[in-house]
Each structure stands twice: as C-alpha cells, then as structure tokens.
C-alpha cells in the first residue's frame, strides 16, 4: 500500500473505543486499522456519528481508546501530545476573544516558552501564509468567519508541526470561501510536505484534497473503505470536472452506501 521510502507517522491496529454513558455504553469506534505515512493527506469521511472526529481526537490524545494499539511518531498519543507533535484545527476557530489576532497565534508559542522575537517572527510568517498580513492588531470579532478560521490555521501552523489534524475546519463556511481555502490548503500541503489528517462530510472536498480517503460508517464507527487517490499531487479546482475525480467520488459514495449511511 505505501511506498517503501515513506515512514509511517500513525499506526492504528484493532482500535476500539466505548463511551460509558448514563444509560447504555456507546460503541464509538470498532476494529480500526489504519496506517498514515509521512506526507499523506488523509481524509476521514462519513455521516454524523461515524466516529471520524472521535478517531482524530484519539490520535490527538483528547480521547483514550478502550482497546487496541495506536502509535503517533512511534510514541503513545500522550507522549506525542506532550512533545507537541501535531497542530489541531477545530471545527470552530476557538480564538480567545481577549487576544488580538497576533496574540492568538502567539499563544502556543508562549506556552512552548519561545523568545519574544521568535514568537513575533513566526506569527508574521504564518499570518502571511494564510494571506492575513495587516490584521495583527485586530480582535477576533472584527474578522469574518472565514478569516477567523484562517487565523486558527495559522495558529496551528505556528507550532511548526509535521502533522496537522483538521476537524471539519471549513464546515461552517460558505462554498465559495471553502473552495478558496481548500486551494490554499492544498498549496500549503504541497509546499510544506506536512502530513495532514482532515475530517469532512463533503465528498467533493475529500476527493479534491486527499491522497488517501478513509470512508467510515456509523453504529459502531468503523472503516468501510480506504481509497488511494490516483489524482496528481498538484491540483486545481478544475480537476473536479475530470473522469478520474468523478470515478473516485463514485467509489466514496458506494462505500458510504454499503455502510448503510443513506438508510435513514
């Protein structure tokens, strides 16, 4: 499946996660097997409740699995988190409203104990990366939703992680903004050679962005299909009209259907 040269960043075997709720236990993840290699762009796609966000939270050590094995960079997720192995972009921007844009980006850097000059340089560099130069002194409420989400991406990038975890980062945005940010994200992935894990429930978004698409289904959350994309690494939005793109989209849709995602 993977090239001999690429290194496995995340290895998951037989992973299980059961939430103990008040009435009945909820089987959130069952029998997950997945390998993510360095430089991959992996999308988790599936309907609500299929465990795609939960799986990503397990990788980030925000949830503990109840069975199976998982390693991140060859360590446990907890060790990887403590070494700040990843940057996490949440569904909402989660900016701190009392901090300016620049101060928000500097938050993780302050926590890491970097020097003031280094913080400033990294904030400027990553704001430029998401095309937000000149907005340093603005407060979050002065920005549109799309700009806020770009700030949160710049904040995740400023940690300079090799692994970027993105949980439906563009879910709340309109389609035009989303297309634009998707292109920027692909460009960023291509230039920085980072490993990206991306949660989405949009088939075109998953197919457009990913080098590997993980199709999931609910109750219990499990992997139905893993699709290696045949699309070239560098793409633009026009690629969505090509037969290959439609073929991969079709396979994703078939996977979702076989997982009974369209049943109810």
């Amino acid at each position: 499946m993977s090239e001999a040269s690429s290194k496995a960043v995340i290895e998951i075997e037989n992973l299980d996660l059961v939430f103990q709720t008040a009435d009945t236990p909820v089987h959130a993840l069952a029998d997950i097997d997945l390998t993510v290699n360095a430089g991959d762009f992996v999308s988790f796609i599936g309907p609500s409740g299929c465990g795609k966000t939960t799986l990503m939270r397990v990788i980030a050590d925000l949830e503990k699995p109840t069975g199976g094995h998982i390693s991140v960079n060859g360590m446990t997720p907890e060790e990887a988190r403590q070494k700040r192995a990843y940057g996490y972009v949440f569904q909402a921007p989660a900016l701190y409203p009392w901090r300016t844009v620049e101060k928000n980006i500097r938050l993780p850097l302050e926590i890491m104990g970097l020097s003031g000059d280094e913080q400033k340089a990294r904030a400027a560099r990553n704001l430029a990366m998401v095309n937000l130069e000149g907005f340093e002194k603005k407060f979050p409420w002065q920005l549109s939703g799309g700009m806020q989400q770009r700030v949160s991406i710049a904040r995740a990038l400023s940690v300079e992680p090799d692994l970027l975890l993105m949980d439906e980062p563009f879910g709340a945005l309109d389609e035009i903004t989303r297309d634009h940010l998707n292109e920027q994200l692909l460009n960023l992935w291509d230039t920085t050679k980072k490993t990206v894990i991306f949660v989405t429930h949009s088939i075109p978004e998953a197919v457009f962005l990913s080098s590997k698409i993980v199709v999931m289904s609910p109750r219990p959350g499990k992997i139905i299909d893993i699709i290696e994309s045949s699309l070239p690494r560098v793409r633009n939005l026009d690629i969505r009209e090509t037969p290959e793109f439609l073929e991969i989209s079709h396979r994703v849709r078939e996977g979702l259907r076989s997982g009974h995602s369209y049943d109810d």
């Binding site: 990843y86 996490y88 949440f90 989660a94 993780p108």
Partner: peptide, 8 residues
C-alpha cells in the same frame, strides 16, 4: 481542548 493540544 486547545490548551490540552499544546500540552499546557
């Protein structure tokens, strides 16, 4: 959660 991802 954000603070936790920074291992603050």
């Amino acid at each position: 959660d954000l603070m936790k991802t920074y291992s603050a």
